[in-house]
């Protein structure tokens, strides 16, 4: 039973916030078989903020360049076109989300948690030798975006919700379902869908607390699920979900990474997290 009409909330949300036009333009330029890196680079330089971000990314420890990357074209060749699409989407989505900043939410801890989850997802995917890991970063970064909607659109309910969450015994998503009829994972998934982001992002966000119910992209979903738990366990939790959410052991089995890799994964998360945080500051 839905206490609140989720559809109308998502609708009103997506009407106000339309996605910046530069994102589809970059996607189109990258996908154009006759296009060149030059064209892509030119579109990117139209937005100085975006250019600066990309340079920062290319210079981060994740890409381990032996020398400083100074030009956009060099940055593009290092990042690669497919990853570029994901990065650009990430940068603009995060920008869109920051308008939800309210005093009810501690945005600092929210983003710390999101970044840590994104980094953890990317590290786990790398350990599994999956290619193009930026999409995992993006999914992790956005996995809790539903919280922002709940805390800005359903202010009436949030007080009761926080009260129950603070008891800490029950997972937050279950409490949300009890109180609202849906949880932040569903809200987030629906919003991303409305923004027409690809299904490989929507699915993992939508099912990140219930990975066994995911109809497709099971591996992606499992990785985001575990990544959130890893991030919380490393004390990168948000003020909303303060505890480590319950693990679905089937998700870890599906990923199939040996337990002996966990200490290395944790260490990598720590290093890359600090780098990733710098990109947002």
């Amino acid at each position: 039973m839905a206490v609140v009409d989720l559809d109308s909330i998502i609708d009103s949300e997506s009407q106000i916030a339309s996605f910046p036009a530069i994102v589809p333009r970059i996607h189109k330029a990258v996908d154009d078989p006759r296009g060149s890196m030059d064209t892509v680079g030119r579109i990117i330089t139209e937005d100085p903020a975006l250019s600066a971000r990309l340079l920062k990314v290319a210079n981060s420890s994740f890409y381990t360049s032996p020398f400083p990357v100074k030009s956009i074209s060099r940055a593009l060749t290092m990042i690669g076109t497919k990853q570029l699409k994901d990065l650009v989407t990430a940068i603009y989505t995060v920008k869109m989300c920051s308008k939800y900043a309210r005093k009810q939410i501690d945005m600092d801890s929210f983003w710390r948690h999101s970044i840590a989850c994104g980094v953890a997802a990317r590290v786990i995917a790398t350990a599994k030798r999956i290619m193009n890991t930026e999409r995992f970063y993006l999914a992790g970064l956005l996995h809790d975006v539903g919280h922002l909607i709940i805390y800005t659109k359903l202010v009436k309910h949030t007080e009761e919700l926080s009260k129950r969450c603070n008891l800490g015994k029950e997972p937050v998503y279950k409490l949300e379902r009890e109180l609202l009829g849906f949880d932040h994972a569903e809200v987030g998934g629906r919003l991303l869908k409305k923004w027409q982001l690809p299904d490989e992002l929507v699915g993992p966000v939508m099912y990140h607390h219930t990975p066994s119910q995911a109809p497709d992209f099971q591996m992606e979903t499992a990785i985001i699920h575990v990544a959130e738990i890893v991030a919380s366990s490393m004390l990168y939790s948000s003020r909303i979900e303060t505890k480590v959410p319950p693990l679905d052991p089937a998700a870890w089995d599906l990923i199939g990474t040996p337990l002996s890799a966990v200490p290395t994964i944790l260490e990598q998360v720590k290093v890359q997290f600090e780098d990733a945080v710098k990109m947002f500051s």
Partner: peptide, 8 residues
């Protein structure tokens, strides 16, 4: 333990 109370 408190931090992990929702887990086994």
């Amino acid at each position: 333990q408190e931090h992990f109370c929702q887990n086994d």
